[in-house]
Amino acid sequence: MSGPPGIESAPPPVLMRFWWRLREPFPDPQNHVKLHRRLNPRSGERVLQIVPKHVAVYWPLPAAIVASLGALLVLMVHWTSPLAQLFWYLSLGVVAMAAVRAYIEWRDVFVVTNWRVVRLSGVLTSRVATMPINRILDMTMTRPLLGRLVGYGHFVFESAAQEQGLREIKFVPDILAVDRQINNAVNKENRRREQMMSSRRRPDDDDGDEERTEPIRGL
């Protein structure tokens, strides 16, 4: 229920806001508030592709779980051994660290629009890094051997301002399709800017032609 007119409702508690922050819809940031604040749909900006991390980036978590199960088997055989118990506790700590790392990678999303590239990252501290498409001077694509086998690669962007948050984008799935999407967006943006510049120059050129063709008085 809404309160009386002129009185704003109280903000939600800190724990509730923290829970909402953890449950933010990644890797599909359709409802991500900070992303939509950066976009400008009224001027024609639209999302072309949303690129989450490749599943290969999560390999430490299943590896840690398998190691933890092995430690559990050792502990079941040598239940009274302090070394086996220590090994079990250490394996649980490794699983917890791998789970936190996987969650951080899950929240790292790369978004391509027709005007810019955006990177969403961060858990407790949200970070949104943006770079206009027309400021991309060079783009290097790297596909390691394992990436060619399972389908991922890395991007290195060279721009005029060298935005640190967008210089390296790692573990990009289907990187060839993403590369084509970015190149098409860059070409379309360059053509759009050329058309805008030519439309701005055209009235000046017409005025100049009229001045040159104006008859000279006194002749």
Results as ranks from 00 to 15, higher is better:
S9W: 07
G153H: 05
H54Q: 05
N190A: 12
F18I: 06
L83E: 02
V150T: 04
W59K: 04
R119K: 13
R148C: 01
P5L: 14
R167W: 11
V117N: 00
S159Q: 01
D207T: 11
N114W: 08
L72E: 15
T213V: 07
R38K: 10
V150F: 01
G218D: 15
S91G: 04
M141D: 07
S121A: 13
N114I: 03
P41Y: 14
S81D: 09
R46F: 10
W88V: 05
R37M: 14
H154N: 11
E24T: 10
R192T: 01
A129E: 04
G218K: 03
L219T: 12
G218F: 08
W88F: 12
F18T: 04
R191K: 12
I65H: 05
N190K: 15
V100R: 09
I216K: 12
H154D: 15
G70V: 07
V95R: 01
D205V: 14
I104F: 10
Y152T: 07
M97S: 11
V95H: 00
L35Y: 13
R193A: 11
Y152F: 14
L75Y: 09
G147T: 05
K170S: 12
N31A: 11
H36G: 12
N114R: 01
G165W: 10
A185M: 06
T125D: 12
N184M: 08
V14E: 13
H36M: 14
D179P: 04
A10H: 12
K34S: 13
D179M: 05
L219A: 13
P203D: 06
H78S: 06
H78C: 02
E211F: 15
R101L: 11
G93E: 02
D204L: 12
A67R: 00
W19D: 15
P25M: 08
E168W: 08
M141P: 00
H78A: 06
A10W: 02
M76Y: 10
P215H: 03
L146I: 12
N190V: 07
E214R: 07
P215D: 12
L48A: 09
R107A: 06
T125E: 14
D108R: 01
L86N: 00
E214M: 13
P173A: 02
T80N: 03
T125G: 03
V118I: 14
L15C: 01
Q181M: 12
R202W: 08
V47Y: 03
L219E: 15
V100F: 13
W20H: 12
R119F: 01
G44T: 09
R107M: 07
Q164H: 10
T140Q: 11
R148V: 03
N190G: 10
H54D: 15
H36N: 15
N114Y: 07
A71M: 02
R200L: 15
I65W: 15
P215E: 14
V156C: 03
R200E: 15
M1P: 09
L124H: 04
R180T: 07
H78I: 05
